[in-house]
Amino acid sequence: MVTRQLPPVRDMLDQQQRGWACVWCRAWLALGSSADLGQQRVVPETGAAYLWFPRECLDKAECARRTAG
């Protein structure tokens, strides 16, 4: 479940959109080391709608440290 507003998908790396990297700090996520934020649907101004699959680090303090630095 998303607890804060997700960053704009247009600003994310492909790895973040696919759930391979954290949406906040861009760290690579190993199996069992992340939380699923739910499937998201994007309807761009041009082009077809698509789905993306955000995930975040389980260790919020470490994620915040990486984001700040």
Rank of each mutant, 00 (worst) to 15 (best):
M1Q: 11
T3I: 11
T3G: 12
T3H: 12
R4I: 04
R4C: 02
R4M: 04
Q5R: 12
Q5G: 05
Q5E: 12
L6Q: 00
P7Y: 07
P8L: 06
P8A: 06
P8K: 03
V9P: 00
R10T: 09
R10K: 11
R10F: 07
D11W: 09
D11E: 08
D11A: 09
M12S: 05
D14L: 14
D14A: 15
Q15C: 08
Q16K: 06
Q17C: 09
Q17L: 14
Q17M: 13
R18C: 02
R18E: 14
W20A: 12
W20Y: 13
A21H: 05
A21L: 01
C22R: 03
C22T: 06
C22V: 02
C22S: 04
V23Y: 08
V23T: 04
V23M: 06
V23C: 09
W24R: 04
W24P: 01
R26K: 08
A27S: 07
A27N: 00
A27W: 03
W28C: 06
W28E: 10
L29Q: 03
L29Y: 05
L29I: 05
A30R: 09
A30N: 08
L31N: 02
S33T: 10
S33C: 10
S34D: 12
S34K: 13
D36A: 15
D36C: 14
L37D: 07
G38R: 15
G38H: 15
G38L: 15
Q39H: 15
Q40W: 12
Q40G: 10
Q40N: 12
Q40I: 11
R41F: 10
R41S: 11
V42L: 05
V42W: 02
V42I: 06
V43S: 08
V43T: 13
P44E: 14
P44L: 12
E45N: 13
T46F: 15
G47Y: 08
A49S: 12
A49C: 02
Y50N: 08
Y50S: 14
Y50A: 07
Y50M: 13
W52N: 04
W52Y: 15
W52S: 02
W52L: 09
W52C: 02
F53A: 03
F53T: 01
F53P: 00
F53H: 14
P54L: 03
P54G: 01
R55A: 03
E56K: 07
C57Y: 00
C57S: 01
C57P: 00
D59P: 00
D59L: 03
D59G: 00
K60P: 05
A61L: 01
A61D: 00
A61S: 02
C63G: 00
A64G: 01
R65E: 02
T67R: 13
T67L: 06
T67F: 12
A68Y: 12
G69Y: 09
G69H: 13
G69E: 15
G69P: 10
